[in-house]
């Protein structure tokens, strides 16, 4: 179904196209008229001061909240109005700024849940585990361990996810999101709680994901990471579009500098 829906779209068209997206909570206009286009296989960073609406933007894209206005087209499909679990089936995955792991499940089980949409087991084999079932389980476990290997948590596979350190929990969220085989992965502050060495490792992993053809949307405060890894950067302030461009363009743009440093625009 997904294959037929995507086959006739233009290759040059962006993977994700957002038009005039707005969302208010009471009197607070968290996101105001945001438009953006993200090409397939790129790393797209969203930066801005605290309260700029970055996380709200991710919540609108993942379907946790519905926008008041605007459209979101992902691989030729309109996402507005679609519940989060269906967006995940279309290839959209995310991590959360406030960690939302399945704390009582083991690290490995957390990743295994991510295979939910990808199982191909005859229904009756859920009751009587046959050869197809065993094979599928083995395949998922192996792939899940590979994903844990990728984020550097394979040695922690059997402990409870709640027992991981803060930084490890963030990495586990990434592994769990990757288990859904996403086309677009949204990571909300992946470097929070990581030390310098871990940030360097995270940078390599994100580059690796891009090389595998996964588009990454990243909300992040760590400017070193953003400037090194991002292909394009969206700067938001007070819920509004401030600037969008390459890292070097962003770094010398006067509006961005004033938003961050509070200087007057000359």
């Amino acid at each position: 179904m997904t294959a037929s829906a995507t086959s006739h779209i233009d290759i040059a068209a962006p993977l994700l196209q957002v038009q005039g997206l707005s969302k208010s909570y009471g009197g607070v206009r968290a996101v105001r008229d945001i438009s953006l286009a993200i090409s397939s296989g790129t790393v797209f960073a969203v930066i801005g001061p605290n309260g700029a609406g970055k996380s709200t933007l991710l919540n609108l894209l993942s379907g946790l909240h519905q926008p008041d206005d605007g459209t979101i087209r992902f691989a030729g499909v309109e996402l507005v109005g679609m519940p989060p679990h269906l967006r995940a089936r279309h290839g959209l995955a995310r991590t959360f700024q406030k960690i939302r792991l399945f704390k009582q499940l083991s690290v490995l089980e957390n990743v295994l849940v991510g295979y939910h949409t990808r199982h191909a087991i005859p229904p009756w084999q859920y009751l009587l585990h046959g050869a197809a079932f065993q094979q599928e389980r083995r395949r998922c476990r192996e792939q899940a361990i590979d994903l844990l290997e990728f984020v550097g948590l394979s040695h922690r596979a059997s402990i409870a996810a709640g027992a991981l350190s803060y930084g490890e929990q963030r990495l586990l969220e990434i592994a769990r999101a990757l288990a859904t085989a996403p086309r677009l992965l949204m990571v909300d502050e992946p470097a929070a709680g990581l030390n310098t060495t871990e940030v360097a490792a995270l940078l390599l992993r994100i580059t690796n994901l891009r090389a595998r053809g996964i588009t990454v949307v990243m909300v992040e405060h760590n400017m070193n990471l953003v400037m090194t890894v991002a292909d394009r950067i969206l700067v938001m302030d007070y819920g509004q579009f401030l600037f969008e461009g390459t890292p070097s363009e962003v770094q010398c743009h006067p509006k961005v500098i004033s938003a961050y440093l509070g200087a007057d625009v000359p």
């Binding site: 995940a88 399945f102 087991i121």
Partner: peptide
């Protein structure tokens, strides 16, 4: 048998965090 299959993980995921579960397609 059901609880030792992916169904067990799916139900536990809903118990632990419904929003996360939905983000994984549940």
């Amino acid at each position: 048998q059901m609880l030792r299959s992916p169904i067990g993980e799916t139900l536990a995921a809903i118990r632990e965090d419904e929003i996360s579960a939905a983000s994984l397609g549940i």
